[in-house]
Amino acid sequence: MNQVINESNQLKPSLSMVFKAKISWNLIGLMPAYLMMFLLMIIPLGIIFYVSIMTSDPYGGYQSVFSLESYQQILFNYDWDDNLSLNLQYLIIIARTLILAMLTACICLLISFPVAYFISRQSNSTKTLLLYLITLPFWVSMVIRVYAWVLILSNDGVLESSLRFFGLVTDLDSLLYNNSAMLVGMVYSYIPLMILPIYASIEKLDVRLTEAASDLYSTRFKTLTKIILPLCKPGIVAGFILVFVPCLGTVLEPMLLGGGKTMMLGNLIQNQFSIARNWSFGASLAMVLLVIVMLFLMWNASKSSRPIVEGSIK
């Protein structure tokens, strides 16, 4: 008995020592996470930044000579007389990328909201099935899925031949290799990323709130705009980011559906590292893309910095 008491007394000081050392222990415990972030995020980004401010080697790779030429190249060209002249070519690609990404996100939103709302109002088993169907495309390689659209949209493809079969068109310009084809492919590829977060926020919405609204003389449309949409805003914003940001860097759709004729930022960067062998220029374009994404996310964060009041109704 006495021995036990003594032991517990001996334990006390060692315990308090552990508490004093708490902070450093926390740091050690979180080390794997910090390490992962450092190795997989900070270092690669650092390398890209480093390459972007070096001189590119004409045979691929780069030479360790400091130069901002690759950034200059985005906006300016040397003409025959070795004078700098404005070159809009790359700006147009950046603008096209932004517009197409924005359009994709908007179209996805318009389609996703009714779909997500419909799913959330089904019975539990139907819900599971429908959500499973929405995630199903992810089980197939993205390349194959985008190729499927090539088959659908190509000359004498599924769409054109069926339109012709029903006599709806007689002569048709190619549906493939233009901006619309890229847009269709992007909407198709990224729409699940919009449906899922919106579904999650609608699912949390209390049906009684819509009943309360209609009890207070609100029409269906007013209930949608005043109650449902504001309360689903977190899901809509999340979905928008999840679609918009990857669209900015997308490679497959412009390559396969744009036919390489209409460039987007993603495949422009890819080209610099492969065909053009201009690593520094590719890296600086990647940095520009990163800055665009960061600016967009910061703008979004500042807009939603007002705390979104969590539902108090349980």
Partner: peptide, 19 residues
Amino acid sequence: AAHKRKVNTVFQNYALFPH
């Protein structure tokens, strides 16, 4: 329709609009 009836309801869990 519910929104045209001149009756109002106090819901069991109040259903106040959280936003």
